[in-house]
Amino acid sequence: MGRQASRRRRPAPSAGGGRRRRTRARSRRRSGGQGAVRGMAIGISVFAALGGGVAVAHWQETRADSAADGAVDAAAPLRADSGGASPSSTPSPSLKSSPSPKTGPSASPSPSASPDADKVIAVPATGPGTFTTAGTGGSAVGSGSKVVRYKVMVEDGIDIGASDAAAEIAAILADERGWTRDGVHSFRRVSSGTYDLAVKIATPGTVDRICGAAGLRTRGEVNCRVGENVVVNLKRWVKGSPEFDGPIGDYRALIINHEVGHGIGRGHETCPGPGMPAPAMMQQIKGLKGCVANAWPYDRNGDYLGGPAVP
């Protein structure tokens, strides 16, 4: 009996043992809470990562939408049928230093007055998507050994004749401030056979269709270049740009020089400094950043009017 009684009796738990059990219970509760917090943190991190992915996709989409100077470009060397907006790997010419900032290129008029300069030209929203090709332009302009064969095509049904547009574009390309000044390129207009560039003047709707097929969104407002196609928006050809302070003929020169510049492998550039001429390869329709509007890649002295490359 005494032995059984002694078995039934258990020593009272010490105060320290009770504290240890309570401590372990609290520890388990805390660790469970920390696990929940860690789980929430992981969930938030995943959500943040997904949110970051959306932000990157949106940034990329926005950048692709706005990659132009009155122009959304698929900038690539000749015959590279690229649908992206990556700059060409061809280096820009070296910038020549000047002892004082230039206030702009020559103030002299464009090489020839456009027959359409004073004509009221309607800008229909869209057109048939078919084109008339201007005739052959004769001998090449420029002394460069790299001959760029180009066509001029005007969408049917608009108030611009293919021959008139071709004459204006030829004068731009022949100007001493144009791309022939690099000593590398010359330009020959053709109407058939092989060619390197096709300059197409088209209604906003047709521009959207051609550029959109390459994944570029012009929204009825701007130009693009995709592969060999330099697609000029009739709206810009007729109305110019609010960022360009000059006659419409000079703005047309900027369109051609910018897009043909991409065609020969030039990438985008930005303003080299306040009061200096904006590079022809700058997206001037997006703002001049302190520069002076300018249509030409070179000045009459043969200095390249460039700026820092845009990544």
Results as ranks from 00 to 15, higher is better:
Lys235Leu: 14
Arg225Cys: 01
Gly263Asp: 06
Ala278Pro: 02
Pro311Asn: 09
Thr23Asp: 12
Gly193Thr: 11
Asp175Cys: 08
Val310Thr: 13
Val123Ile: 15
Lys235Trp: 04
Thr203Glu: 10
Val123Ser: 07
Ser86Arg: 15
Gly227Pro: 08
Pro109Leu: 10
Ala280Met: 04
Asp250Thr: 02
Val154His: 02
Cys291Arg: 10
Phe244Cys: 01
Arg189His: 04
Leu234Glu: 10
Leu305His: 09
Ile210Thr: 12
Pro93Tyr: 02
Ser27Pro: 00
Asn257Ser: 10
Ser27Met: 13
Ser94Cys: 00
Ile210Leu: 14
Pro242Lys: 07
Arg3Gln: 09
Phe187Cys: 02
Gly267Asn: 08
Val56Asn: 03
His58Cys: 02
Ala166His: 10
Asp175Ile: 13
Val230Tyr: 02
Arg219Phe: 15
Trp237Cys: 06
Phe47Glu: 00
Gly83Val: 09
Ser86Asp: 13
Gly17Ile: 08
Pro242Thr: 06
Ala12Pro: 04
Ala85Glu: 09
Thr206Gly: 03
Arg30Asn: 10
Gly43Ala: 15
Lys96Phe: 00
Pro247Asn: 13
Trp59Pro: 00
Asp245Gly: 02
Ala12Ile: 03
Ile248Val: 14
Phe187Gln: 03
Asn294Gln: 09
Phe47His: 01
Val199Trp: 00
Gly39Phe: 05
Ala295Lys: 06
Thr90Tyr: 03
Arg177Thr: 12
Asp69Leu: 05
Gln60Asp: 15
Gly17Phe: 13
Glu259Ala: 06
Ala67Phe: 08
Ala174Gly: 12
Val120Asn: 13
Ala80Thr: 06
Arg10His: 14
Ala253Asp: 08
Gly302Trp: 10
Ala15Gln: 11
Gly144Asn: 08
Arg10Ala: 10
Gly83Trp: 05
Leu197Pro: 04
Thr270Cys: 03
Lys200Asp: 11
Ala49Gly: 15
Thr90Ser: 05
Ala74Glu: 05
Gly261Val: 04
Gly246Gln: 07
Pro297Trp: 03
Gly178Lys: 04
Pro91Gly: 05
Ile121Ser: 06
Gly290Gln: 08
Tyr298Val: 03
Arg8Pro: 00
Gly84Glu: 11
Ala76Gln: 09
Asp182Gly: 05
Cys271Gly: 05
Arg3Gly: 00
Val292Cys: 01
Asn301Ile: 00
Ala214Ile: 08
Ser106Asn: 05
Ser66Leu: 11
Asp196Ser: 10
Gly137Ser: 08
Arg189Phe: 03
Glu221Arg: 13
Val148Ala: 04
Asp250Ser: 14
Arg38Tyr: 11
Arg21Gly: 04
